[in-house]
Simulated scan of single mutants.
Amino acid sequence: MITDQSTRGGGSRELDRRVRVHAALADSTRLRITDHLAYGDASPTELQALLGIPSNLLAHHLGVLGEAGVVTRRRSEADRRRSYVRLLPDALDGLLPRNGTTVSRVVFVCTANSARSQLAAALWARVSAVPVASAGTHPAGRIAAGALEVAGRRGVALGQAQPLPFADVVRPDDYLVTVCDNAHEELHQTSSDLPSLAMGLHWSIPDPVRVATAAAFDAAFDELNQRVIHLAPHLTAV
């Protein structure tokens, strides 16, 4: 006799989770939200502008997605009144859009270009043939010691990398991934001055330099690695 394990113990809980996720996505607005968050983060203000709906309706949809375990929020490190909505890892396994995008180069951007963007570029180079670079809106004088240490512990080579200014690195056809709330919000505010720049995605990742502990750098490394692995198959070189 075949026993249906989906009705027992953990199988039942997983079935319940899947039912909640499918119910949450049974709405065109919520499906558009999840599609938009598939590979990057967005603030409620950005989602509201994208969808053209009032803030109370957006709050309702985000609440439904949050209760279903699909999205979560993280407070902006730049403007503490602002938050970013993120799709939870593995929440929509098998349900995300699979459309690929052709790009000439990926550029990871943070404020100082001394930790997150450098690590992201090094991680990207390990898994993708798409050219990669990194830059800072206000570059530091050198790579953060914690970034060099975590790279060494995890077997990632930063080589002779040095922080570089955004204006000296970024080209109009680059695909930008901001990994810093400050850089994202600064570029978002000045995007009208960069009409030909493809902004790409934002990843709201806490700054490990502020905390300056090995644990903080490990956490940033792990999140960057997870996101890079998730995005890389969906971007191909021109």
Rank of each mutant, 00 (worst) to 15 (best):
V130A: 10
A133K: 02
R8G: 02
V177A: 13
L148P: 00
D93G: 12
V19P: 01
T137C: 13
A133I: 01
P54H: 03
A120R: 05
W203I: 14
H230N: 14
N99M: 07
L37D: 00
E223H: 11
E186I: 07
R126E: 14
L57H: 11
L201F: 02
R73P: 00
L50E: 12
W124F: 13
T178W: 10
A129I: 05
R17C: 08
A49W: 00
R142Q: 06
S114C: 06
C180V: 08
P172F: 01
T3R: 15
A212M: 05
V156G: 11
G66P: 01
E149H: 10
S192T: 08
C180E: 14
T29C: 09
L57A: 15
F221N: 08
E14N: 05
H184D: 11
Y175T: 03
L50S: 09
Q189K: 06
D41T: 04
A68I: 14
V179K: 14
V179Y: 14
T137D: 08
E46L: 07
V156Q: 08
G63K: 00
G155D: 06
G141F: 02
L15K: 11
V169S: 02
V85W: 07
T102P: 00
H22R: 09
L231N: 14
V64G: 04
S191L: 09
S134N: 05
A49N: 06
D41S: 04
G9K: 12
G155C: 02
P165Y: 04
T3Q: 09
G200M: 08
L201R: 10
P54K: 05
P89N: 15
L201M: 03
D222W: 05
A237I: 12
A183K: 08
R105H: 07
V211Y: 01
N113E: 09
T3D: 11
R142L: 03
F108T: 08
Q5N: 13
A129C: 12
V150Q: 13
V64Y: 02
L176I: 10
L25Y: 05
R13F: 09
D93E: 08
P195L: 01
A216T: 11
A151E: 12
H188S: 15
R105D: 10
A23G: 03
S76P: 12
Y84A: 02
S6I: 11
L37S: 05
R80I: 08
L15G: 02
G66R: 05
T236H: 15
D218I: 05
D193L: 14
C180N: 13
H36L: 14
C180A: 06
A216Y: 10
T190C: 12
D222K: 10
G69F: 02
G9A: 14
T137P: 13
I229V: 15
G63L: 00
A129N: 12
A26R: 05
A151L: 15
I205E: 04
V179Q: 15
V19Y: 13
L62Y: 08
T178K: 02
H22K: 02
A219L: 10
V179F: 14
R98A: 12
N182S: 15
S76W: 01
R98G: 11
Q162I: 10
I33R: 06
R153P: 00
P208Y: 04
E77V: 04
H202Y: 06
